[in-house]
Nucleic acid binder design. Structure first.
Length: 597
RNA sequence: GGCCUUGUAGCUCAACUGGAUAGAGCACCUCACUACGGAUGAGGAGGUUUGGGGUUCGAAUCCCUACAGGGUCACCA
């Protein structure tokens, strides 16, 4: 779908068909696509779906339609028929008009803000017992990017995160810190808070393993040995104290979580992402409990003899699912019910919530949405689980206990350092201040990383080979950035004001110029599609295709040096459009474009 | 075992949701070259789209089936 032209063409085809064959096709039957380069023409109408209604073989109907369209539309100056494909050539005036319109449009690619309903996007959902890793990076970049795409598509967007700050796993690092920490703090060690706490989580695991080994040596099986482990018992006791509001435990919990939040903030800042509002499970699980009990009273849920509360989803093809334990304590689902309801209460007119969570939780979200619906939240129908595949390493899944995690901070640093040394080697940063070099290394290095993670369709699991995955050449952010910089450089040196450019309507566009125009003009439709599919990879790949065309165009088309004034203006306009289109697209991926590199 | 999901060039990914001769990048081999910024461009080679059936004007895409990976079916989160 290219802006202005295709909608115009769509209607022209409907009218021409009706005039020729006496019937009006449905919108669905009109398929317009870009003409393949090996054929003459710009836009192609696929006539096969219309042949039946026309009562003629596809190539005959195509021929007739072509004739009529050419007669009726002064902006179509030729056509060709290949089998059931009608290839239409558009006039230069038609292209120039569409380009001029795009040039006048502010925020090219974005729909009117607020023209679509308000949506909430959740991403990140970290635990407060360990640092962020590569999997979180995919999650966070994906959620952040989707929120920007939704915004560009005209939605109001609220970005939130849920923080998993309670439960036995949190107590583990607290117990270990008390046992082995000797009062260490991030200030005393100079360590990032999340890293410090994570270290004690690992220490707990190590101590637990030792206890289990010792227990098994006494003849217990693995489960019994874990139950008998002294350090495990401590953790359980601490959880009980926490739930009972024990002052010391709560104080320690606040302190250690505070360290982690400081660490996370640093990482989020480096990533270039932010949130509008934070939710904590410690704040929402009680609401979840009361909602479940309420649901039980209303007969939506049922209770077993032991007192546990369940929902029966067999009608929906699922199983019975536990919502509250017999002892009245909350499970994962309880919390999520509470969180969801709280959010609907916090933001009235919220059309839906989008949860960016790994695909291993698909079943969980199916259940959650059904439960919400039964509780009477109609919005839950349009809720969406933005599910994404695992990031796999060559040696398999990441496992924190086996030390095969790729740490988020470390990876970002490697990316910055690599970008920096490449810039240095190429002699690109002479005359840059240290601060400018840092900025550039961050834009390029982090850009490469974000692009790498976002160019793959979310549903797919992806391979990350630390040794060779991340590249700075080819289909990468640095390649895109480089070409945008080149583009900007031309506009800068010519002093071009894009909105002041004018050239003749009759200026002829050659094949590569039309290709650029097509890429620019189809961008708004790509953004809409990406929003509907929650898929940033569509935007990423579109930006790459467009900039690649530009790079090729640049090679053998003079722009600033062109002597024909009309052609020069048209090429400058195209360059400006490519530059802003790609910059907008990349911004939707959270990737910045430098001025020089 | 039930359900979900994936399988495309040596590797990492596309393919406008059923359209024309399945496209890119990396790696490999040619060629262009003091370029309006070479972090470049042009070309070559590389495919029975996991196998087998089916649906139709037309299938990587839809259906059936077999095979292979991943996930899930927790009073973990």
């Amino acid at each position: 779908m290219i802006h202005l032209i295709d909608s115009r063409l769509h209607h022209a085809v409907l009218d021409a068909f009706e005039a020729t064959f006496g019937k009006r096709p449905k919108d669905q039957q009109i398929q317009i696509q870009t003409t393949r380069p090996e054929f003459e023409g710009d836009r192609t109408l696929v006539v096969f779906p219309l042949a039946g209604m026309a009562g003629a073989p596809p190539h005959v109907a195509a021929e007739q339609l072509g004739q009529v369209l050419q007669e009726r539309c002064d902006w179509i100056d030729g056509f060709g028929v290949v089998k059931g494909f009608l290839n239409l050539s558009l006039t230069d005036a038609c292209w120039n008009e569409a380009l001029a319109d795009a040039l006048r449009t502010p925020h090219w690619g974005a729909a009117t803000p607020g023209s679509r309903p308000k949506v909430m996007v959740e991403y990140s959902s970290p635990n407060t017992n360990k640092p962020l890793h590569l999997g979180h990076l995919r999650n966070i970049f994906l959620g952040y990017s989707v929120s920007r795409i939704l915004k560009a598509a005209g939605h109001d967007v609220v970005k939130v995160q849920i923080i998993n700050d309670r439960g036995i796993h949190i107590c583990k690092s607290m117990v270990a810190w008390k046992a082995f920490g000797q009062g260490e703090t991030p200030t005393s060690t100079g360590e990032k808070g999340d890293k410090l706490v994570g270290r004690y989580y690992v220490a707990f695991d190590k101590a637990l393993k030792a206890d289990i080994a010792e227990g098994m040596a006494r003849g217990l099986d693995a489960k019994e040995a874990e139950a008998a482990s002294p350090i495990m018992q401590e953790a359980r006791e601490m959880l009980q104290k926490w739930e009972n509001g024990d002052e010391d435990v709560v104080a320690l919990w606040k302190t250690m979580n505070g360290w982690v939040y400081d660490g996370f903030d640093e990482t989020y800042k480096a990533m270039g992402v932010d949130f509008d509002k934070l939710y904590y499970e410690s704040d929402t699980y009680l609401l979840g409990k009361s909602q479940v009990e309420e649901g039980l009273k209303r007969g939506v849920f049922f209770q077993k003899e032991d007192g546990s509360i369940w929902v029966d989803l067999t009608e929906d093809g699922l199983d019975e699912k536990l919502l509250l334990r017999a002892d009245g304590t909350a499970v994962y689902m309880t919390q999520d019910i509470g969180t969801a309801i709280l959010r609907f209460a916090d933001f009235d007119n919220l059309d839906r919530q989008v949860y960016t969570v790994g695909n291993e939780q698909e079943y969980h979200f199916k259940v959650l949405f059904l439960v919400l619906k039964r509780l009477g939240f109609a919005q839950a129908e349009s809720n969406h689980h933005l599910s994404y595949g695992m990031v796999e390493l060559p040696e398999g899944k990441m496992k924190s206990r086996e030390g095969t995690v790729v740490d988020a901070d470390d990876l970002m640093k490697v990316m910055r350092d690599t970008a920096r040394s490449i810039s240095n080697d190429l002699g690109k940063v002479e005359g840059f201040s240290e601060a400018e070099k840092d900025d550039l290394a961050q834009m390029v290095g982090h850009g490469a990383l974000k692009y790498f993670l976002l160019k793959v369709a979310p549903a797919k699991s992806m391979m990350f080979d630390p040794k060779s995955s991340i590249d700075f050449f080819g289909n990468t952010a640095p390649f895109i950035q480089f070409n945008v910089v080149r583009c900007k450089s031309i506009l800068r040196t010519t002093g071009t004001q894009a909105d002041a450019l004018s050239w003749s309507e009759m200026t002829a566009l050659d094949d590569s110029e039309r290709q650029l125009a097509t890429g620019v003009l189809s961008f708004p439709a790509v953004v809409q599609e990406a929003a509907e599919q929650y898929d940033p990879s569509l935007v990423a790949n579109h930006c790459y295709d467009l900039i690649k065309s530009f790079s090729s165009f640049y090679q053998d088309h003079p722009i600033a040096k062109e002597t024909n004034e009309d052609i020069r203006s048209m090429r400058l306009a195209l360059s400006a459009l490519v530059s802003t289109t790609v910059s907008h697209g990349m911004a939707m991926l959270g990737i910045d474009m430098p001025e020089r590199m």
